[in-house]
Design a protein around this nucleic acid. Structure first.
Lengths: 338, 338
DNA sequence: GAATAAATTGACAGCGCTGTCACCCGGTTT
DNA sequence: AAACCGGGTGACAGCGCTGTCAATTTATTC
């Protein structure tokens, strides 16, 4: 009652434990009638294989690791969600492991994690997707892994990404179409390379529209609300102020709006603001934020899918999986004052 | 190199594997000199015990389960953070498991989780802390668990909670002190009993200050931004409008502010708004939200601590661990118009 | 100093499962 | 008819560790 083991199932079905094992693992070469007998016994006893035993004997754990850096980042929850849903449907569990990408010992930390838990594979989210020592460890250990939005050594592993630059390009064009000529840009954290790429889109749009890139309109941000505020203060203190500010993520955009409000500026009347990510805050602030929706959950699902495929021995062709973002027009952007 | 087992360590240290096991598990009755020899060997070989083997042999897994309901709720991240940090420092891992408290099969789901993964204990967050079938399963299995903010059968397990009612009382008094007489209250999701308790504090404060409780100022919310918007629309449509609205959580308060802004109301000039939780959004919206800070991370840590203590056989005295919240005054509240 | 108690250590049998390999059997191939 | 084949099955040896219990060594007592 408390626990049925493979022996019980074997006894009830009148076969050897090895055969039960075959059925449980969906291995071929079991006669259909035998398979049915076993399945019936499994149901009857409500048998669940013991993961630890499987792990020990089979040298795999049916657990994958999800590594991420900044737990407070809004996307973490979405990533977890995507990974969990895919794992659950395939009988895997997830061990979450936040770690600091700047810690010189991250690689060691990951190594310990792997050895202790015997996780079968790993999913890396930015900025960990680009931390070379971690990549090295994983390669050395030959542990399957999939990266989300990597920017370095892309040939190394399967990965998924979005068309960030393109979306940023679209957003910038949108602002230009609204009549904005002086568009401030708040760049993302330099370690988050993928976020950095958004700048490329911004620049491309300016070039495309024959607008000179004004260095003074470029501010380095660090993905946080506070860094957005700071950047906004700098931009709004400019002699020739921007009429729109495009922040590389929503948190920073929210910071911009806060500063604008405090300065008595109307949004979007006096200043248009655009963000990136479509985190929950984007539609909870006033006015609601024009931004770019990232299919984060879908990316995580896709990444997990790729990982589990690898674990099951299917060869995953390296080429990336590209998911596309979409522009969400809300109330924080409007025509430029004439 | 790739892997050192307990045998290798034993061989190198010149003792039996059992002695190594004792050292690793910090068991008593090992001579100090022996212990040192073993520790030296462990360091030298960079030995890490294999969790699966430990789990299988010792019938425990060094993994605890963290169950929660709504992954998108802001507090989930904080809870995870608290649980993880405590676990990590004590060599445990965490398996996160979101599940729907309204699903009639939750209990079954939890049961399966337990049997498969052999988790050693469980932490329940609201509203799962109050789901009786889950409690029943855990009791039946005699699996140690700790609840965060439970409201039913408190004698069953150790738990941690905050003084929600008291904080809500303080907040209401604060509003009254600012001159507000008609204070709207948006109640939390009925299934989140702990949130519901906040209403008690509100009521107590009114009674204390001889303000009659006006039923029309009470609206049922469901913890979401949208439900806050809806409730606000109802309250502001009242013939005799409230001059302040106290929402039982920040998301709903943000919804109130959105509606107020859209209606052209000044905050806090025309309407004061207060929330509860101090989620990130609270200081990212404009004007920043007066709210109550919940020590969520600390609660999670405390809960984990209690759980791990239990797992280590230390008897945990049932009495609750009460952590206190604190009122955060920001810009969304101000004196009532006279 | 012998007897007794306590501390220290090791031998060994599993925990529940999978990998290996040998075996059995009916159908083909020479 | 002997040799061969491959699908289907089971016996058995671990995976790396802990629990049990007995053996050995070291205090402690009178």
């Amino acid at each position: 009652m408390t626990k049925a083991t493979i022996d019980n199932v074997a006894a009830l079905a009148g076969v050897s434990i090895k055969t039960v094992s075959r059925v449980v693992n969906k291995e071929p070469n079991v006669r259909q009638s035998t398979r049915d007998k076993v399945l019936k016994a499994i149901t009857e006893l409500d048998y669940r294989p013991n993961l630890s035993a499987r792990s020990l004997a089979g040298n795999r754990s049916f657990v994958i690791g999800l590594l991420y850096d900044n737990p407070s980042a809004n996307y973490v929850i979405d990533v977890q969600d995507g990974v969990l849903s895919t794992c659950r449907s395939q009988g895997y569990d997830v061990l979450i492991h936040p770690c600091n990408h700047q810690d010189p010992d991250v690689a060691r930390e990951v190594w310990d994690l792997i050895r202790q838990t015997r996780i079968d594979g790993v999913i890396l989210t930015p900025p960990l997707s680009d931390v070379e020592p971690i990549l090295d460890i994983l390669m050395e250990r030959q542990l399957p892994f999939v990266r989300i939005a990597p920017t370095v050594r892309k040939g190394l592993s399967p990965y998924v990404e979005t068309n960030d630059a393109e979306a940023a390009y679209d957003m910038t064009c949108e602002l230009i179409a609204l009549g904005h000529q002086r568009i401030g840009f708040i760049a993302g954290h330099p370690d988050h390379k993928a976020v950095t790429h958004r700048f490329e889109g911004y620049r491309a749009a300016l070039v495309e529209n024959d607008i000179a890139l004004d260095e003074s309109l470029l501010v380095q941000g660090y993905n946080s609300f506070e860094s957005g505020e700071e950047a906004a203060r700098a931009l709004l203190a400019l002699e020739s102020k921007p009429s729109a500010i495009f922040a590389a993520n929503d948190d920073m955009a929210a910071g911009v709006m806060m500063v604008a409000h405090q300065a008595g500026l109307e949004i979007p009347g006096d200043l248009s603001v655009a963000g990136f990510d479509d985190t929950p805050v984007a539609h909870q602030i006033w006015p609601s934020l024009t931004t770019v929706r990232q299919p984060i959950q879908a990316m995580a699902q896709k990444a997990t899918d790729l990982l589990l495929k690898q674990l099951k021995g299917k060869d995953v062709q390296l080429p990336a999986s590209m998911l596309s973002s979409s522009l969400i027009r809300r109330d924080s952007t409007g025509p430029a004052l004439r």
